[in-house]
Nucleic acid binder design. Structure first.
Length: 132
RNA sequence: UAAGCAGACCGCCUUAUCGCUGCCCCAAAUUAAUGUGGGGCGGAGGAAAGUCCGGACACCAUAGGGCAGCAUAAUGGGUAACACCCAUCAUCCCGAAUUAUCGGGAUAGGACCAGUGCAACAGAAAGGAUGUACAGGUAAUGCUGUAGUGAAAUCAGGUAAACUCUAUGCGGUGCAAUGCCAUGUAUACCGGCUGUUAAGGAUUGCCCGUCCGUUGCCGGAGGGUAGGCAGCUAAAGACUUUUGGUAACAAAAGUUUCAGAUAAAUGAUAAGGACUUCAAUCCCGAUAGCUAUCGGGAGUUGAGGUACAGAAUCCGGCUUACAGGUCUGCUUUUUUU
RNA sequence: CGGGAUGUGGCGCAGUCCGGUAGCGUAUACGUCUGGGGGGCGUAGGGUCGCAGGUUCAAAUCCUGUCAUCCCGA
């Protein structure tokens, strides 16, 4: 199982991020929020992923970096849910909406649930399209 | 042995698996500089923080002169430099001694015989003063002392963290500086030569000054957007020893290479260890008398805890945050000789 | 990375430049006018002036450090 998470899989383009927030859909599972958008005409066959922790919730840089590392780790462990169930590529943005610092085990469970919901939602949509 | 104060230093460790990132090596592939696979070596701090000072470095030939503005303020030294550090003096505070001094701490510590301002309440009077009572004194007079108000009452008064004066220093902007590459629009801009000599424009807050300055020709491509490379980490480096110096520090010799990310890398999981807190258990001593209380010690078990905090051009300081531990010096205390 | 502003009763603000008394509106409590409500009038309570240190006889005010919030530029 591929559990790597290299430079190529990181979402960096400002344009894509802007359109992601403008047109993207979102799924929530406390303390996380996932904003996503299908990637059209992408040359690389990978999902682009970014994580974000608002400065408003966590003042100290140590806490923000810690949470971002944990979120990256949780995605890395759960990315098979996306890659094995969906054939399209997506731009994904994880946002930490909680106010307290969760530990890794809780965060892992939460992100697993979140990604399952995301996959389900996208499958439904594709199914509807096929019927039409 | 315990406590306090001051200074210096350290600031969790090991292994395995899965990941991130920089450099190097190897392999095959396409191709001519990349990705893929494998291996090796590195990968946050004492404050990386606050951004309060000082530099290095880079660019702007508008950097010159004056005013304004800002900063500093005992003396001497250190330093690339400083508002930092060291030494000495002075003033104040604390302690010991006791009127010689000793130890520790603090100090924005130039100048109110250049000028101006300010002083609530109380008080006769608060800055070209003189009132009351008593006493003294005179030829005479607030001439002198005491009382009273107040932080301060005539004194070269106090106050400059009041304006100000004196001395010294300060060009501006900052690595998103700056140089280059690719992309790419079509005349804003830049460079050179030429022409015109005056309206205008530029600049550090203002003035002087300085520079540019409507044409034509030649050359180059701007701004914006999203990227890449360099700058970018070998340096006022770190460590050890010796010498000079009261010290800060300097010099010499030797050893050594120690993060470079960019939606921003150092993480996750498991096991073990270290330190430490609490509870239970065991042992010893004392007091009451077979169970309680107090003190000390040891290992086991269980439950915790391991702070403050994350590099972003780089250094030197300052300030602030910080669990716990180590060492040195001084003072006091206990025991033994 | 750089620059700036603010912090004062529960809430919104003045006072800070130029140091001596902390005040205004609103809210709260009580009284009063009214048959009652609303509203008016009167009285009262309530403030470590963000925090710490310094200068001064005296600090919300001057100086230094620090904390928090907000804004701007690249």
């Amino acid at each position: 199982m591929d559990e790597s998470f290299g430079k190529k899989e990181k979402l960096k383009s400002k344009i894509v991020i802007d359109s992601l927030f403008a047109e993207g859909n979102s799924v929530k599972k406390y303390p996380l929020r996932l904003v996503y958008l299908p990637l059209e005409n992408s040359s690389e066959n990978v999902n682009k992923v970014a994580v974000s922790v608002p400065k408003r919730s966590f003042k100290r840089a140590v806490d923000r970096i810690k949470l971002k590392r944990l979120m990256r780790e949780a995605y890395r462990k759960n990315k098979y849910l996306v890659t094995s169930n969906l054939y399209k590529n997506y731009a994904l943005m994880f946002i930490y909406t909680g106010r307290d610092i969760w530990n890794y085990a809780e965060l892992l469970r939460s992100s697993e649930e979140l990604l399952k919901r995301f996959v389900e939602q996208e499958k439904m949509k594709d199914h509807e399209k096929d019927i039409l």
